[in-house]
Computed example of a mutant assay.
Amino acid sequence: MGGKRFGVLLCAEDSEYVKKKYGGYFGVFMRMLAEEGETWDMYKVASGEFPKDDELGLYDGFVITGSCTDAYGNDKWVHDLLTLLNKLYIMNKKTLGICFGHQILARALGGKVSRSPTGWDIGVRTITMSPSLPVALSSLQLPSKLSIIQCHRDEVQELPPKAEVIGWSDKTGIEMFRYGNHIMGIQGHPEYSTDILLQIIDRLIQRDFIMEAIALEAREKAELWKLDMEAWKILCISFLKGHYDRNEINGK
């Protein structure tokens, strides 16, 4: 008892594959972020399951996952999530948004999200990192360019007032943003492995969301590129917790 406590705001339905192999997307995030002595809770916000107001103070931070839902949509749970995120902002809670989470954070704070004019981004892409990282990240000495898995067709078009771009790519101008030192959004998926990406590509084809040619190119890139998963892990843990202990995370 007495360890840090974090909440995962699950915005997507788990696929059978991910449930069976990884324990769902909650399990995927736990593998990347959880350390010994911590408590991690999951809230299926896409199903209307939210933390209560009097519970928010118990948490040191929250992570918002990806989703198939549009961050600019008007689903009830999306509006409820916007309300929650504004409460977390007022409380100065560490909040990390991934993909849809990145987009909904931008919307909650006054930015604009829409379909990308250049279409889907699926596969692996290189992100250029700004030197203006949050305080907890500025001393990590990470590479200035990091590869990450992408799987999205929406993007943040306009930053919220006072927010700052801290990562971009040759396709998307706002790959990462910060709002002070307690809010950060990442458009890509630092938690995804190549295995998860390939399974998602198959699902997108089955649902006619993407054409076979796009899927083929994405598969080829995914199998050729080296992912900087450890660097993203360091970055995300350091942002949420203000520290990074390589030996502790590697279980040594």
Rank of each mutant, 00 (worst) to 15 (best):
G2D: 14
G2Q: 14
K4S: 15
R5M: 12
F6G: 09
A12L: 15
S15A: 11
E16P: 09
K21E: 00
Y22Q: 01
F26N: 06
G27V: 03
G27C: 12
F29L: 12
L33H: 06
E36F: 04
T39L: 13
M42P: 03
Y43T: 08
Y43K: 05
P51H: 01
P51T: 00
L56D: 07
G57L: 08
Y59P: 02
D60Q: 11
D60G: 15
V63Y: 03
I64Y: 04
A71V: 12
Y72V: 06
K76V: 15
V78A: 09
H79C: 14
L88P: 02
M91H: 12
M91Q: 14
K94V: 11
K94M: 13
C99D: 08
F100G: 11
Q103Y: 07
L105D: 05
A106P: 13
L109K: 02
G111F: 03
S114M: 12
R115I: 14
I127V: 15
I127D: 04
T128K: 14
M129Y: 08
M129E: 06
M129C: 08
S130A: 07
S130W: 05
L133G: 09
A136Y: 05
L137A: 07
Q141P: 02
Q141C: 12
L142K: 07
P143L: 10
K145C: 10
I148D: 00
I149F: 01
Q150Y: 10
H152Y: 02
R153Y: 12
R153A: 02
V156Q: 06
V156A: 09
Q157N: 09
E158A: 10
L159V: 03
L159P: 07
P161Y: 06
K162R: 12
A163T: 05
S169E: 01
T172I: 07
E175Y: 00
E175T: 03
Y179S: 08
G180E: 03
I183T: 14
G188F: 11
H189I: 01
Y192R: 01
T194R: 09
T194W: 01
L197A: 00
L198F: 10
D202T: 10
D202A: 11
Q206E: 15
M211T: 14
M211H: 15
E212P: 12
A213P: 13
A213N: 15
I214F: 01
L216V: 10
R219D: 04
E220W: 07
K221C: 07
E223H: 13
K226D: 15
D228A: 06
D228S: 08
M229I: 06
A231P: 00
I234K: 14
I237M: 05
S238C: 11
F239E: 04
F239R: 00
G242V: 08
Y244W: 00
N247F: 14
I249R: 15
G251A: 11
K252Y: 13
